[in-house]
Design a protein around this nucleic acid. Sequence first.
DNA 1: GTAAAACCTCAACCAAAGTTGAGGTCAAGT
DNA 2: ACTTGACCTCAACTTTGGTTGAGGTTTTAC
Lengths: 155, 155
Amino acid sequence: MSNPDFAVPSGTLSVGEVARRSGVAVSTLHFYETKGLIRSLRTEGNQRRYPRGVLRRVAVIKVAQRTGIPLASIQAALAALPQGRAPTAEDWAALSRAWQAELDERIRRLNQLRDQLDDCIGCGCLSLKTCPLRNPRDALAAQGAGPRLLEPDAD
Amino acid sequence: MSNPDFAVPSGTLSVGEVARRSGVAVSTLHFYETKGLIRSLRTEGNQRRYPRGVLRRVAVIKVAQRTGIPLASIQAALAALPQGRAPTAEDWAALSRAWQAELDERIRRLNQLRDQLDDCIGCGCLSLKTCPLRNPRDALAAQGAGPRLLEPDAD
DNA sequence: GTAAAACCTCAACCAAAGTTGAGGTCAAGT
DNA sequence: ACTTGACCTCAACTTTGGTTGAGGTTTTAC
């Protein structure tokens, strides 16, 4: 059994090659596949063969991850790419813009926090009920698993 | 058995009170205790009683968490507070300064990433070997579980 | 034609930061 | 006295982002 050119387009990459060239472990590529972040064709012997585009896709995944976006959201964003044709530069750019906006928002929130920490230095106000850092709902949207509820106004 | 004033200093808080006043779940306070982030005295009936200082401590923990610092590091920082006496405002301020520096660093890295994403928009360069976003070691320290290794210079 | 390297699946495990539940005890109000 | 709510411990489970290993197959290279 062979003529691999029939079963699998030539110019595809094995999982090991993708791993080497993308800097991502083979196990991670398997994992991404189970999560629907990437897809592969199979040889007759059931081995993965990736279209070249996978390298860009993995690059994009890693970049998005570094901005703090969870894999599930990355998956959703990638799934929204046009089906049927290879994504264009503009498709990728649109993704980048969306993620950049999210990143901006995260940076904004961290800066706010930083400034408040600045205000609080030396005043010991972390124990005061009026401190914005102790009452995040005042100034900041809950980030992650923030405090659910603070005493209305007692103490 | 009682005379709680003997076993436990008066003016202490039960775990439920701390939960209500700090906005943190009881189970979380238990969890923090197992991680050495807070400590408690016990009544004769084995119930937790917290010194009032625990409220500030929990507030500080939550603030640090919002800056993205892992609990283990927070624990280490808190453990470095002077033993024996209650921390002073200056003690807390020193902590704040340290965390603020970390926060600054995180913000700096995210800004760098944002700018690079900016540069890359529209150029489709995520597929190019020269793109700084694909070769993070060029410009950025590995953040979290970054790519281990990128091909030396092939491709 | 055979041995080694690469690949396959599946299940188990890891860390972080908790949450949930079972089964039992303590404390407080009436 | 007794019921109810708050508390106790311990173990198991959750999510995210993977890694590790066992046991078996495929591909490649000599």
